[in-house]
Amino acid sequence: MNDVLIVDDNPLDVALHERVLQRTGMFGRIWHASNGLEAIDMFCRHEQGRADAPEGFPPLIVLLDLNMPLLDGFGFLERCAALPKGVRSRVIIVLSSSSAKLDRERIADSEMVAEYLVKPLSSAVADKIARSFIDDPVSRSGDGGRE
């Protein structure tokens, strides 16, 4: 229900952000895609996703990197706009190492993007995301949801 899809080609950043999200204890399953194309493919295989996670698919939130091979964040947003609403995630948050004005402006044009965040994702920001976008944050044990 409160699943997150991290779309990023940097495995270290994926590992880091997964840890940070899980430490808040407020998110469900963390999904991965290493570029925009993989993420779109994941949405398109909707039935399989539903079978895999009847409650969690499609993930509620996408954390989207911009600079990726094959299909970058901008390309992902374009393709995503063409998908039916129930098939794609409800919340898309850009999480990029770029604070370049040019990138921000390009993203500002996209109505689908809820927020533009600059890496790295801190626990405080992850916490804020949970409170802003999740109606009923998962409340796990007091150890911060560590695996």
Binding site: N10, L12, D13, L16, S97, V118, K119, P120, L121, S122
Partner: peptide, 18 residues
């Protein structure tokens, strides 16, 4: 260059915070 310089710094900062 700004991306390639900033990216490892962001990752390093993230891991330091963690």
């Amino acid at each position: 260059v700004s991306h390639d310089i900033v990216a490892p710094i962001s990752t390093a900062r993230g891991f330091l915070a963690l």
